[in-house]
Amino acid sequence: MAGLQQGEVPVSQDVSVVGVAMTSMHRRDQAPEAMARQVVAQAMADAGLGPADIGLVVMANALGGRLSDQGCVRGQSWLRGAGLTPAPVVNVDNSCAGGSSALHLGTLAVRAGQSPVLVVGVEKMWTGDRLGTLAGIEDGLPADERHALHARHENSSGSVLMGLNANWVRQQLEDRGTTLDEIAATAVKARAQGARNPSAQFRQETTAGEVLGSASVVPPLTRLMCSSFTDGAAAVVLESGASSGAPRVRASVLRSGDGELDYHDRLTETAEQAWKEAGLGPSEVEVVEVHDATSAEELWALEALGFFRAGEAGRATVAGHTGYGGAGLYVNPSGGLVARGHPLGATGLCQVVELVEQLRGRAGARQRPDTTTAVAVNTGGIMGGRDAGLVAIHVLQRG
């Protein structure tokens, strides 16, 4: 289409989010098919639709091949009996960004005239095979880079990804003026907001002293600063056109890295395109869900996305501005990855479910009054030991 830059999407019509659902994140006793069918039924009921109404299903999952013996056709297998036949099922595996990738594909499909579209993300991480789960997470690294990354970032936790995150934290402390006390305050905020979320994995509040004194993962990261394995699922139903009371997808922007940029520079690049597509700036956003694999990452991401200047996000968090009832941007009202949970292929959709509930005014004890604009930022994979495999940003507005 004339006039479009590479990667831009021609927006031909509104895309509305008419139904959402999410499982509780604190259970470990459900199979992926049970979680997927639960959220599908609940999201369709929320949308006022039946299975026969759905024109396309997009299913996101990262670890089903390794941990659930379902390497292919996961959506078709796990949604058998849900009554969705003959709607086509497309499966997406994009590491931690699978859910947001699936949402992007669903948005494109609706803009192209396919509606309604059901987008589902599900992840089963607790199987009793911790090493298998860690290996599955490391599938988000290029195979030819893993050996060198293990040699460079080997640590007692066994997680190369947390080793990479710890490197970023040390850089953050040295170069950006962030402090460990600010990172601890961010973890405290996450647990406080998780305590307000009945679906969160961790619902017990904590203190800064407990965060700093919890078990070391990779110095300077401690256990309470980090996300954990999570079982969970989420689903979203998309329709074309404006629907009364239904939030709209104002922008859906994805960017992939190849190792040439730092992860946070890739966040900035993607955010600039998202603000352009949405026709607004970060100062107009009221609520954001960011990809806080660690509490330190929440702070750097907020700065890279343009919400704060370098070194200022931590101070705003300590002052209480980014938490429930704060005076500023409301960050990770769900509790984020650290408290709500991080079910890899479902995480991006969990973020969107929270934001839709905020925009509808249905978020209960964690509701920000009169929310009109919200943003979800989800990432997945690491390229070259430094770049994001994918950054996905979705801007939502109240219908």
Score class of each variant (00 low, 15 high):
3 G>K: 13
5 Q>M: 10
6 Q>Y: 12
7 G>L: 05
7 G>W: 11
8 E>H: 04
10 P>G: 00
12 S>I: 01
13 Q>N: 05
13 Q>L: 00
15 V>C: 02
16 S>Q: 01
16 S>M: 00
17 V>L: 13
17 V>P: 10
22 M>C: 07
22 M>A: 15
24 S>Q: 10
25 M>L: 14
29 D>H: 03
31 A>M: 12
31 A>F: 05
36 A>M: 01
36 A>V: 04
37 R>N: 00
39 V>R: 09
39 V>M: 10
40 V>Y: 05
41 A>Q: 12
43 A>T: 02
44 M>W: 11
47 A>D: 03
47 A>V: 10
51 P>F: 08
52 A>M: 03
53 D>Y: 11
56 L>Y: 05
59 M>W: 00
62 A>I: 02
68 S>T: 13
74 R>E: 03
74 R>I: 14
77 S>F: 00
77 S>A: 13
81 G>M: 07
82 A>F: 03
85 T>G: 02
89 V>Q: 06
92 V>C: 04
93 D>S: 15
95 S>L: 12
98 G>A: 10
99 G>R: 11
101 S>E: 00
104 H>V: 14
107 T>C: 10
111 R>M: 15
115 S>D: 00
118 L>R: 08
122 V>G: 02
126 W>F: 15
126 W>Y: 14
131 L>I: 01
137 I>K: 05
137 I>H: 00
143 A>T: 15
146 R>M: 03
148 A>W: 09
150 H>S: 01
158 G>A: 04
161 L>Y: 04
164 L>V: 09
165 N>D: 05
168 W>H: 12
172 Q>W: 08
173 L>S: 12
178 T>I: 13
178 T>W: 02
188 V>K: 07
189 K>V: 14
189 K>R: 15
190 A>L: 01
191 R>S: 07
191 R>P: 07
195 A>Y: 08
198 P>V: 02
209 G>K: 12
212 L>G: 05
213 G>M: 09
216 S>R: 08
218 V>T: 15
220 P>C: 12
223 R>H: 09
225 M>V: 04
227 S>E: 05
227 S>H: 11
227 S>D: 06
234 A>F: 11
238 L>D: 03
244 S>R: 14
245 G>K: 13
245 G>R: 09
246 A>C: 14
246 A>R: 13
249 V>G: 05
251 A>L: 04
252 S>I: 06
255 R>M: 11
258 D>E: 13
259 G>L: 14
261 L>C: 05
261 L>N: 03
264 H>Q: 10
264 H>A: 13
265 D>T: 13
277 E>W: 03
278 A>K: 02
287 V>Q: 02
295 S>V: 08
296 A>I: 09
302 L>E: 05
307 F>N: 00
307 F>H: 07
309 R>S: 13
309 R>Q: 15
309 R>P: 03
313 A>T: 12
316 A>H: 14
317 T>H: 07
322 T>S: 14
322 T>H: 07
324 Y>I: 01
331 V>G: 01
332 N>Y: 08
333 P>F: 13
336 G>V: 08
343 P>V: 14
343 P>Y: 10
343 P>H: 06
344 L>M: 15
346 A>H: 06
347 T>R: 04
353 V>L: 12
354 E>I: 07
356 V>M: 09
359 L>R: 08
363 A>E: 10
366 R>G: 07
366 R>K: 14
368 R>M: 09
370 D>M: 07
371 T>I: 05
373 T>H: 12
375 V>F: 03
378 N>R: 10
384 G>W: 14
388 A>Q: 10
389 G>Y: 00
393 I>W: 01
397 Q>W: 01
